[in-house]
Design a protein around this nucleic acid. Structure first.
Length: 160
DNA sequence: GCCAACGTTGGC
DNA sequence: GCCAACGTTGGC
């Protein structure tokens, strides 16, 4: 880890793919496909093996950080962009220069209890976190070490 | 279901 | 290059 370990947050709708789905996946690993936002893609391209990921459930009740995953394979082309039957098919993507990438992530652990957006907003040290910004829609985003530490501390103390 | 806050597309 | 129209995300 010459460049050090970096922290990220990735959003998924639990109806589509939850942290339990990740834990049940073969080798507890999945490729994070379907990202069709350049900023999110660029963050995935910046990921290194061993980087740690907060797994976030969006469109959940309540929306929450639910656990941790880690990057086990760096960015490579997303096969779904070339699959006409896939919801994320992108006819404009050139197979010789694929537009969209995935990374592979592996389940690390699930928190004893989900950490809701409201709980995160109560934490002073998380003020300014991208996730908490009004109108923030970025599905893959960097997390500062201080934010990572604060969230893990909250996950230890909130068990209800 | 509503709608604010985006990001993308395409006419000009 | 501008920007209106459109489609999507995601909290509420």
């Amino acid at each position: 880890m010459a460049e050090g370990r970096h922290y990220w947050l990735m959003k998924s709708e639990p109806n589509a793919f939850s942290i339990d789905d990740l834990a049940r996946s073969p080798k507890q690993t999945t490729s994070w496909d379907g990202v069709r936002n350049y900023q999110a893609r660029n963050f995935m391209r910046a990921m290194n093996i061993g980087d740690q990921v907060l797994f976030y459930h969006s469109n959940a009740q309540p929306p929450s950080v639910v656990g941790i995953a880690e990057v086990v394979k760096t960015a490579y082309p997303d096969a779904t962009q070339f699959d006409k039957k896939d919801a994320h098919y992108d006819p404009a993507s050139d197979p010789d220069e694929p537009r969209w990438d995935v990374v592979d992530i592996r389940f690390v652990r699930k928190f004893a209890a989900p950490l809701s957006l409201d709980q995160l907003r109560e934490e002073a040290s998380l003020k300014g976190m991208e996730l908490l910004r009004k109108g923030s829609r970025l599905s893959v985003q960097p997390v500062k070490p201080t934010e990572w530490n604060a969230i893990l501390r909250l996950a230890r103390t909130h068990t209800d």
